[in-house]
Design a protein around this nucleic acid. Structure first.
Lengths: 299, 299
DNA sequence: CATTCTTACGTACTGCGTAAGAATG
DNA sequence: CATTCTTACGCAGTACGTAAGAATG
């Protein structure tokens, strides 16, 4: 019996098909078949019943699953507790909300590559909802994103709050006083796509203020939104920390609003019994990066 | 990281040398070296410090040991709980007190080979003390023997009591009444060797009765002692069940003694976290055999 | 100098991917 | 007919044993 066989078994069970497990493990699907048939041969029992083109767990398979998962987590335990970080190698599929990609991500990558030079990060920058979906599907190991609701099937680590403010080009001649939602609504709004977390925050902000926004554009790319804002095409909600430079150079003006925009909490999420607990390592490093950068933003 | 590597590591640590682990695992010593250097390479830390020609655990090695042992026992857990017994294979080194070899052993072998056809038993019939030593050394997986004192490092399963009686040839003209130790001492005694459990029992029996025996012969083989007894060379303590036939055929006579000989409890002993928990399986089967045979001695 | 671990090397085998096949919805 | 698993086959890397070497008590 080999660890690889159990690993294949675990991922087939989690993802529901041999093919999905193969993709997840970066091996071909026939190889997954082979690992399972070897496992079954050595145990002397079938762990999957092949009904049609779908594989379901047999009774024995259901018994095996918790033990195999324990095996996987024990392996990772060994790697954590006794292995030299320099020699840990593997790939972490890291989903990143775009805002994070614009702030802490470079630090995180730097930190990972210094502490775990053998670890490769596969980045996927996407919108919040898509990231959760991919986490569930097992396509991602870890995601850095705003936590909307509790997801009991994942561990989460708090990363930090990000503060947003309405910003616009100085050419908009924004008055230097508190503005209410209805006043902000006089300018067209540049928004992140509906799948994003920020979209619903802004929608609520206007709704609660009894105003209706005029959407100038939806975009799935925050960086582009900032550019469009600088060009004077409308107002948008941007992270204040990130655009401090533009504000000081008078390329962007902050709109003082009442109520202010709520702070957005960001979290690292990962599967608790991750086959590679590199997922957890990266999540923890991410948390370190943000506390670090919040204490000393120049770093 | 592979299970084989951890297995080698565990056995080196238990037995204290690469060579001993190699013998234990039925592989060559260079192969053990290779497995360890691979393990160390993949963990990026040395688990043994090679001081002189002796290998001692490093700090990381000490951390690894409990995790590796847990891994081994988890593997065996899987084999037990989900594997088909017919497909379980391996070798169990079974130490057997000679008395057991003369009574339950054939049943045990039969039972093992019927339930676990893939399992090979390597029998080692020896005296009690030697069996304990070999268990400690890791040469044996399981031993069936009288339990003299508590051995906290082993699990034990009670097998049953065996009753002994003084026996002699009818040619000795044993009187048909209760004999005291001093009277038994008139005949020369045929004894199991000093390393045996029976030896000390008999020595105590005479001592407590205030008598001194005349030792005719010490032998490490109970079967031979029985033969010598039948030939009239002296008296000996033999298991009553086993020699019922000889008694009925008037080849042996039972000496009625006061006090009678104490019953001897037999136990199966094995390492708790045995790398192959086949050790535990065999111990349990042994227990089943004896209860079986005591309920129905014809089987 | 015997014991113990390491290194070197040849061989046999295992495990993977590609490609083709079978089954199913 | 697209999707999913199985089978067949060839190649490459792995893992073992033998043999020789180094170190030590």
């Amino acid at each position: 019996m080999k660890l690889q066989q159990l690993e294949a078994f675990v991922w087939i069970t989690r993802l529901g098909s041999f093919a999905a497990a193969a993709e997840r493990l970066n091996i071909t699907q026939p190889t997954v078949s082979q690992r399972i048939s070897e496992l079954e041969g050595q145990l002397g029992v079938a762990v999957f019943k092949r009904v049609g083109r779908r594989a379901h767990l047999t009774e024995q398979g259901r018994g095996l699953m918790p033990l195999a998962e324990e095996m996987m987590s024990l392996r990772q335990n060994i790697l954590h507790k006794v292995a030299n970080p320099t020699h840990i190698s593997g790939t972490v599929r890291l989903g990143v909300a775009e805002l994070v990609s614009l702030t802490w991500l470079p630090q995180l990558i730097d930190r990972v590559s210094r502490l775990y030079p053998g670890v490769t990060l596969e980045l996927d920058i996407d919108l919040t909802e898509n990231l959760w979906d991919k986490l569930h599907q097992g396509v991602l190991d870890t995601a850095l994103l705003p936590k909307i609701i509790e997801r009991p099937s994942f561990e989460t680590i708090f990363l930090g709050d990000t503060h947003f403010a309405w910003m616009g080009s100085p050419s908009l001649n924004v008055p230097d006083r508190q503005l209410e939602p209805a006043e902000v609504a006089q300018w067209p709004v540049l928004l992140l796509s509906q799948h994003s977390n920020l979209y619903s925050i802004i929608e609520n902000w206007f709704q609660d203020g009894g105003a209706r926004m005029q959407r100038r554009a939806l975009c799935n790319n925050l960086y582009s939104i900032a550019n469009l804002t600088i060009c004077g095409l409308g107002v948008s909600t941007l992270p204040t920390d990130l655009y401090q430079g533009e504000i000081e150079r008078n390329e962007l003006t902050v709109l003082q609003t009442d109520p202010p925009l709520p702070a957005v909490g960001y979290w690292a999420a990962y599967r608790p019994a991750e086959s590679t607990n590199l997922a957890a390592i990266v999540a923890r490093l991410a948390a370190e990066c943000t506390t670090f950068s919040m204490a000393d933003p120049t770093q």
